[in-house]
């Protein structure tokens, strides 16, 4: 709840600068980030990790940031936890428990598989999710290009 608006604005400017750099890198890694009606389509991994670590609660267009993650029952959960939070699944749960408890972030949405994630992101503006890179049928309009 105690967001610092000044920090958010600074980060937001950096993101804009990245978008207009014109340098887009294809995601050939294990995971692909997807998002709906957010302010950018291309960003850096660092920025995207910052988003997934609950640094922001709303986008520039005032959409609430809704983070979508594989649930603990998902086979990707361990990888995602390690990839994004550099911890285990329970570590990721503790992280989010603390975040939500203290009101720093909106509560994330945990879904059991990638298709549910894709479906959720597609239907919910402001949401951002992570799926395996090789997941079929990822609509391009929700993909986020990661550069650098």
């Amino acid at each position: 709840m105690a967001f610092k608006m000044r920090q958010i604005k600074i980060i937001f400017v950096i993101l804009i600068l990245n978008i207009f750099s014109g340098k887009v890198y294809s995601q050939n890694d294990k995971f692909t980030f997807i998002a709906n009606e957010i302010d950018f389509k291309t960003t850096t991994l660092k920025n995207i990790k910052a988003v997934f670590r609950g640094k922001y609660s709303s986008w520039k267009n005032n959409q609430d940031v809704t983070i979508v993650l594989p649930s603990t029952k998902s086979e990707n959960a361990g990888d995602v936890a390690k990839y994004l939070y550099e911890t285990t699944v329970t570590g990721m749960q503790k992280f989010w428990l603390s975040q939500v408890f203290q009101g720093r972030s909106n509560p994330p949405v945990f879904l059991e598989n990638d298709s549910e994630i894709i479906e959720y992101v597609r239907k919910n503006p402001g949401s951002i999710g992570i799926v395996k890179a090789n997941t079929p049928n990822i609509p391009n309009n929700i993909k986020i290009n990661i550069t650098g």
Binding site: Q93, W96, L97, V100, F101, N106, P107, P108
Partner: peptide, 29 residues
Amino acid sequence: LSLKNDDFEGLKKTVELASNKKDFEYVAV
């Protein structure tokens, strides 16, 4: 519930519910 079901929305609501009671000093986990 939030830990069992990965439902942090419920946690948020309970915390909000508690936080509405302004007269407690603090709540800790």
